[in-house]
Simulated scan of single mutants.
Amino acid sequence: AAEWRVPPFSGEIRDGYLWGRGAIDMKDTVAVMLATARHFARTGTRPAREIVLAFLADEEAGGKFGAHWLVEHRPELFAGVTEAIGEGGGFSYALDDTRRLYPIENAQRGMAWMELTAAGRAGHGSSPNDENAVTDLAESLTRIGRHTFPVRLIEPVRALLAEAARLQGVDLDLDAEDLDAELAKLGHVADFMQVVLRNSANPTMFTAGYQTNVIPGRATARVDGRFLPGHEQELIDTIDALLLPSVSREWVNHDIAMETSFDGPLVDAMCAAVRAEDPDGHPVPYCNPGGTDAKAFTKLDIRCFGFKGLKLPHDLDYGRLFHGVDERVPLEGLRFGVRVMTRLWQDC
């Protein structure tokens, strides 16, 4: 909290922004939905179709006690629901000084959070030990953390890159052998998309020992693994190949990747709502590098999209604010979102 310019739980309004933890992940989406619902209730307006509003806890921890619980124990609450929109997309991304992409999520990477355990031989810290659990686990984590997975262009990613190239007037060959050189033609758009070009695995936690002069017989660590739709087994096989023989793994949270086609009346309505409010906006399909409650609702055969309708200032580094210091959302962006969502509910 000391690193923040405002108290992180104050909800302070300053300099045209609403500041606070969760402002963009994802209280902004909640605010837009609630404000739209309030407007419909106050004016007596009826949406074009029946809408179920679901506000759920536990998404950051995988949704075990939120969305997944409801899908497993109370699926009747969603009877007749064929499509869903939530967080994860529909925010603006500056293409240049005047034009913006609006990546609408229609895919997500899967979640593979795992715990690694190294079993070794306990001993005194002053003695040689070639079965040191800390050493074996550290080496395994280093191999995982420094590994670069191969590029796998799934359809939503390919479509976004192709549209960005068209808008920029760039001749782009997405089947080129040297894909990195091709993507470099897109400048900052390529940087924005790096996170969804491949699987990933990052060590995040390490626990071992209780005393400086004692070599522990056991060490554990956590790894955040993510996989693209259709590439789960590649992630698992790669992790297993990188682990030393003394290191085993088990799942902490293992959830699906998802993808739906970028078509149909709802997609058309989302795109139309954005274009109506921002003529320089260009909706495109998008793969969310993380995950949302959509993973649960997909199991009910509900087509899920990420769409918050948020217009952002070009100088705001939106991606770095997620779970970050000085998280904030522009007030005008929220007002824009309510206008977009109102159009969507009226037309979808």
Rank of each mutant, 00 (worst) to 15 (best):
W4C: 06
W4D: 11
R5A: 14
R5V: 13
S10K: 09
S10Q: 11
G11H: 04
I13N: 00
Y17H: 15
W19I: 05
G20W: 08
G22E: 01
V30W: 00
V32T: 09
M33C: 10
A37V: 05
H39N: 10
T45Y: 04
A57V: 12
L70S: 00
E72S: 15
E76M: 09
E83K: 04
L101S: 03
Y102A: 13
H124C: 09
P128N: 02
A133C: 06
A133K: 00
V134E: 02
E139D: 15
R143E: 12
I154K: 06
R158K: 08
A162E: 03
A165M: 10
V170A: 09
L179Y: 11
D180M: 09
A190P: 13
V195G: 01
L197Q: 13
L197G: 12
P203E: 03
Q211L: 10
I215Y: 01
T220A: 14
V223F: 03
V223Y: 05
F227S: 11
E232A: 13
D237R: 12
L243H: 06
S246H: 02
V247H: 06
V252N: 15
V252Y: 14
I256W: 05
E259Q: 15
L266D: 02
A269P: 09
V274F: 13
P283Y: 11
P285R: 05
D293H: 02
F297I: 01
K299A: 15
F307N: 04
K308W: 00
L310Y: 03
P313M: 07
H314F: 07
Y318E: 01
F322N: 05
G324Y: 09
V325C: 10
V329N: 11
E332L: 11
F336H: 15
F336Y: 15
V340P: 00
